[in-house]
């Protein structure tokens, strides 16, 4: 059974870390108002561009390749997810477990070779 008492520190850590980093973000905002460094101007609040007003929308359409990378990543991540329990249970499952996983990996290697040959992994 999972020892839940080991997870409580993580939850507390999350709370403490969130509190610390929020303090780091919001305290200086208060401090700068008190010390008088807080002087926003229109030019200061404009988005960054090299000395002229930005003339196109920053949220432009993107290359479809990014989707492809993300999809390939999901597939290999799932493959790794199947490898995790396999790696610690090989003692139990023995050669049968090893053989099944090699078959599984072989299936994915076929897909990988296909991706390579088609040029889905190219990035120019």
């Amino acid at each position: 059974m999972t020892d839940l008492s080991q997870y409580l520190p993580i939850l507390l850590f999350l709370v403490v870390a969130l509190a610390l980093s929020s303090a780091f973000v919001f305290l200086p905002m208060g401090v700068s108002r008190l010390t008088g460094t807080y002087k926003p101007t229109e030019a200061k609040l404009a988005e960054y561009e090299c000395g002229f007003p930005a003339f196109e929308d920053s949220r432009s359409q993107f290359d479809v390749r990014f989707y492809l990378v993300a999809i390939l990543f999901i597939i290999f991540d799932l493959e790794a997810a199947f490898l995790f329990p396999w790696a610690v249970s090989l003692g139990e499952t023995g050669w049968i477990g090893w053989g099944t996983m090699m078959l599984f990996l072989f299936e994915l290697v076929i897909g990988f070779i296909y991706a390579w040959k088609v040029g889905a992994l190219e990035w120019e």
């Binding site: 973000v25 919001f26 905002m29 700068s32 010390t35 460094t37 926003p40 988005e47």
Partner: peptide
């Protein structure tokens, strides 16, 4: 720490912080 926090006017304030 003593500097001013600039939040650009075009930004999404909540997510930005």
């Amino acid at each position: 720490f003593l500097q001013e926090t600039i939040i650009p006017s075009a930004s999404n304030r909540g997510l930005f912080l």
